[in-house]
Amino acid sequence: MRTNGNPIVRVQNLHKWFGLLHVLRGISLEVYPQEVVVIIGRSGSGKSTFLRCLNLLEEPTSGRIEIDGITVEAADGELLPESRARARDLRLKTGMVFQDFNVFPHKTALENIIEAPMVVKGVPKEQAVEKARELLRKVGLLDKQDVHPIRLSGGQKQRIAIARALAMEPKVMLFDEPTSALDPELIGEVLSVMKDLAMEGTTMIIVTHEMGFAHEVADRVVYMEGGVLVEEGPPDQIFTCPQDPRTRQFLARIIESGRLV
């Protein structure tokens, strides 16, 4: 799938410091339209921080991010002034799905989905509702449209969160460990929605510990450790004959724990 012309995401030499902690140490990555990139690595390797920098939930210390023509740049711990003004434009290019769902508890499933299109984009209500119902059907929750999140399971909440992000029609979907907070029996329903999205050609960057899913769905797998991208390649290569000893060690440990399907 790497043949789709120019990259839609281009990250150059991204650094992030948290106080004295150097969490991202010069990350560069390009993602092409319709590509599914899965980032794996142990906790604390900077995967989530990297993902959160892409939509500026974390402000990078230095480096450059370009998504679909919107560029932001940071230097010396600050976004450049003209980049700060573009922060919202950049966010509108991305949709984010969080580990803890973060659905809005005071709104029904449908209201969760129509909120941002109406408030941020000014989409008329009927149109937003029509689109939301379409998305609810896609994630298999049309019958729950008038239900508040408290009455939904974790898997259902996460599917609402996915629909909510999709409603803004982002160019790239970012998934930050979308199944890590779920009971094991609920993981499948979320992964299956994500699989459908991949089949439809949604550009996705996914941080996950679900190696089986990564193997099956990813176009490219990236192994991260210590704030750098150690190795990347097609899933077959990464999972069967990783080149870097660090990748090998990580995967060996995961196979031991029985998580690699």
Partner: peptide, 13 residues
């Protein structure tokens, strides 16, 4: 929760 702020921000609000 902090997640609510993040979700709203990520949606471009």
């Amino acid at each position: 929760g902090h997640g609510q702020y993040e979700a709203a921000t990520a949606l471009g609000m």
